[in-house]
């Protein structure tokens, strides 16, 4: 027997939750599906296929005010931005759950990013299992799978005209208290098959591929926009700048930034340790495949395939992994 919720009851449950909490879910605007606060549940894209942008939008938004600085009675007062209501992030796929877990690594490492930590504490993750995989998906190669509930508070698996409901966390259980769940003997469907990519051993061979001409050739066609980084659930680089608003109130604002930008590492005076396009392109993959594993304990990729989909010149992370493995294997047997 499994816990079950009908499609109508699911929407009713979400609608009820919206009264007290912010509900963020996949919403489509002008053909682009992103996680955004929901105005009415009918707007939610119930089968998001993989949103164009990742759920990091919620925890680490494109732009956010970290704190404000104002003057009161001659004193300088710094006020951090805080989150008013608890929230539900709905409709993320299992790989996106892994994405959130990866985002936790830098942001929750001590000293934790307070604004991120607060959002994580106050947000419950309600995921949707994948009905289908897409050709660019490779989540199973990175330890997740289409029905993986590991990094979610609630997982819904579509079956028998509704959803099988799974929850192992306290947060999830608490949220489900208001859901109209029934006991059902509907069978759990088989998860969809997912393409695989040879990730195993990548961290070990990565240092040997660093100076290969492959990166220069790949950078030939890279246009060095920031899209791969912006849609990535695990890319977390940022910039911080000040804004002065009405009444002289200063806002310190954090915005997405990416290692692909030429100015990313340029210091005042003009020096940059990464002056070539190839060095910048390589940085993105080395950060994911070598530096993150060494510093934070995990490869910085979920296999969601968003970067593959969004790239206008087909820089394909799967092809890069495969090529790195091939080059690495040659180095390992001592070939030139």
């Amino acid at each position: 027997m499994a816990k079950f919720i009908s499609k109508t009851d699911l929407l009713a449950w979400l609608e009820g939750l919206m009264k007290e909490r912010t509900l963020a879910a996949p919403i489509k605007e002008e053909g682009v599906t992103r996680f955004a606060p929901v105005k009415k549940v009918a707007d939610i894209v119930m089968d998001p296929g993989a949103t164009d942008f990742s759920p990091k939008d919620w925890f680490f938004p494109p732009s956010e005010t970290l704190f404000t600085v104002s003057k009161a009675d001659g004193k300088t007062v710094i006020t951090p931005r805080t989150m008013e209501k608890e929230a539900i992030l709905f409709g993320l796929h299992p790989c996106d759950g892994l994405g959130v877990a990866l985002m936790d690594l830098p942001f929750l490492a001590e000293p934790a990013d307070a604004s991120y930590a607060e959002k994580r504490e106050k947000t419950t993750l309600v995921g949707l299992a994948c009905r289908q995989s897409r050709p660019e998906c490779f989540c199973t190669s990175l330890g997740s799978n289409p029905f993986d509930a590991t990094y979610l508070d609630v997982l819904l698996i579509e079956a028998g005209g509704g959803y099988i409901v799974q929850s192992k966390t306290e947060k999830g259980q608490k949220l489900l208290a208001s859901a109209k769940l029934t006991e059902s003997n509907v069978e759990t469907p088989a998860p969809p098959a997912v393409n695989t990519v040879p990730v195993e051993g990548l961290v070990a061979i990565a240092p040997h591929v660093f100076n290969d001409a492959f990166w220069t050739r790949l950078a030939d066609r890279c246009i060095h926009c920031n899209m791969c980084a912006f849609v990535c659930p695990a890319c977390y680089c940022f910039d911080i700048r000040d804004y002065v608003g009405k009444g002289g109130v200063v806002e310190r604002v954090r915005s997405w930034e990416s290692c692909q930008a030429a100015g990313f590492t340029k210091i005042a005076g003009g020096y940059t340790p990464r002056p070539t396009k190839a060095a910048r392109l390589r940085q993105r993959f080395y950060h994911k495949f070598l530096y993150m594993p060494k510093q934070l304990g995990s490869i910085g990729c979920t296999g969601c395939g968003r970067c593959v989909r969004v790239c206008p010149v087909n820089i394909d992370i799967r092809e890069i992994i495969t090529t790195m493995q091939k080059i690495g294997a040659k180095v390992a047997v001592g070939a030139p």
Binding site: E29, E30, C225, N226, M227, S258, G263
Partner: peptide, 26 residues
């Protein structure tokens, strides 16, 4: 329309006419 812009500058990067050594936005 512009509200959706995520400032990835892909438009600039792809444009044959955008080749300033340092773009005004940077």
């Amino acid at each position: 329309q512009f509200d959706r812009c995520v400032r990835c500058y892909a438009c600039r990067q792809a444009c044959p006419g955008c080749y300033c050594t340092e773009c005004f936005v940077d």
